[in-house]
Simulated assay, not measured.
Amino acid sequence: MENVFVMDHPLIQHKISMLRDCRTGTNEFRKLVEEIAVLMGYEAFRDLPLMEVEVRTPIESCRTPMISGKKLAVVPILRAGLGMVSGILTLVPSAKVGHIGLYRDPVTHEPKEYYCKLPESIEQRVVTVVDPMLATGGSAEAAVNFIKEKGGKQIKFLCIIAAPEGLERLHRSHPDIQIYCGHLDRGLDENAYICPGLGDAGDRIFGTK
């Protein structure tokens, strides 16, 4: 699928395997999510536009490339997406951070919005939406809808694990955005959980049950 990138980097795959392990505790899980976000962000930002600026080195002045345009925006889907934000900010400390709050209806499994706050001038920014899990695709689809309604045009979506059902739905709804997945899993169970997955990412990041 065009604009869909499934990561094959050995470090990403190794760390995802550690995430899956039910014996991995909250602190280690949280650190792994952050580390994976750094590695995925490095790949996802490969096409950021550059412009040349004048810089004076200790030796002489030179023209040298820097990222052009407005600062990036990072938008986690609450609450699990928060675990990936620090990893992205490690790469781009100047990025602005927004938040989209969604919860999944336990019967329909469809997303319901309860919060949406985006950085100003969103239409001029490269917006990176982060959520560790892309299951049914409903939350991701809704989040991208909200961003586009606010004027966002350049959008990337990063997830650590995706189900084929969610990936297909998000790509079908928003074929213009770039989607980056750490790993594509087998599918969803009857409760719309990714299999084999890694359980509830939010619970494992924040130590709740």
Rank of each mutant, 00 (worst) to 15 (best):
F5P: 01
D8A: 02
H9F: 07
L11Y: 09
L11N: 01
I12K: 05
I12Y: 04
Q13E: 10
Q13D: 05
Q13F: 02
H14T: 13
K15Q: 13
M18K: 15
M18I: 15
L19T: 14
L19C: 14
C22M: 13
R23A: 14
G25V: 03
G25E: 14
G25F: 08
G25S: 08
T26F: 00
N27F: 10
N27C: 02
E28V: 15
F29V: 05
F29C: 09
L32F: 01
L32Q: 07
L32S: 10
V33P: 03
E35G: 11
E35F: 07
A37F: 14
A37D: 13
V38Q: 12
L39N: 12
E43P: 00
F45I: 10
F45T: 14
R46T: 10
D47R: 13
L48W: 04
P49G: 02
L50T: 11
M51C: 06
V53A: 10
V53C: 07
V55R: 12
V55H: 05
R56H: 06
E60S: 11
S61K: 11
C62Q: 09
R63H: 10
P65N: 09
M66A: 11
M66K: 14
I67F: 14
G69W: 10
G69R: 04
K71G: 11
K71Y: 07
A73I: 08
V74W: 09
V74Y: 11
V75A: 09
I77W: 07
I77Q: 05
L78G: 06
L78D: 11
R79Y: 09
A80L: 06
A80P: 09
A80T: 11
A80E: 12
G81E: 12
L82Q: 10
G83H: 05
G87V: 04
I88L: 15
I88K: 03
L89A: 07
L89C: 10
T90K: 15
T90P: 00
L91T: 12
V92K: 13
V92I: 15
P93N: 07
A95V: 08
K96W: 04
G98I: 03
Y103H: 15
R104T: 05
D105M: 04
P106H: 01
V107H: 03
H109V: 00
K112N: 09
K112M: 09
Y115I: 08
Y115G: 03
C116H: 15
K117N: 06
L118D: 11
L118K: 12
E120I: 01
E120S: 14
S121V: 02
I122F: 09
Q124W: 02
Q124E: 15
R125P: 03
V126P: 00
V127I: 15
T128H: 00
T128K: 00
T128Y: 00
M133C: 01
A135T: 00
A135L: 04
T136M: 06
T136F: 05
T136R: 05
G137T: 06
